[in-house]
Structure formats: structure tokens, C-alpha cells
Amino acid sequence: MRLTCPHCGSRGLEEFSYRGDATVQRPALEAPEEDWVAYVYLRDNPCGAHRELWYHGAGCRAWLVVERDTLTHVVHNVRAVCREETP
């Protein structure tokens, strides 16, 4: 499997680590406990299109949002979570 890092270009899987669902949002401190439990423990396992967080730890150390099809393994899009400021 390969991912095209928006900074480094096309790289092999071994440079990345996986974190999972990119759509979950960290709740506010005062949010109900159920929200926190859902954030920490509950994940959907979709068959098909999925947005995932990957970390390019062996490259530029950017966190990436990867749009990937879990059924076909087709990677539709990769973008950095945080827009990089470059001159």
C-alpha cells in the first residue's frame, strides 16, 4: 500500500502509522460523559468510503486525512490535517 503525502510524495506503508477514524471530534471538557465515552471508545467500521488519520512518522511527521475505500483499498485523497505554512 502506498500513500501520497502532500509534502513528501508517494511513499510506502512502512513510513506511516494508522490512528483510525478522522471524523471523530474531541468533545468540550464539559460535554456529557456519553460524548466522551463515544469519542474515546466507539468507532464505526464502515465498508466502503472512510476518512482515516495517518501519521507520516518516518517522513515529515505530518498527520494526514486519508480518504480510502476499505473495501477496494482505493485511496481517493490525502491531505494534511493542518495546513503547513511555507514561504
Binding site: 490512528r19 501519521y55 512518522g57 498527520w63 490535517v81
Partner: peptide
């Protein structure tokens, strides 16, 4: 290090 990058980039950019 990975945790710090996550917190900075994903939680509190």
C-alpha cells in the same frame, strides 16, 4: 513525539 504532533496538528492547531 507522535502524541505531541497529534495534539498540535489535530486537536489544537
Amino acid at each position: 513525539m507522535q502524541h505531541l504532533e497529534f495534539c498540535h496538528q489535530c486537536l489544537w492547531p
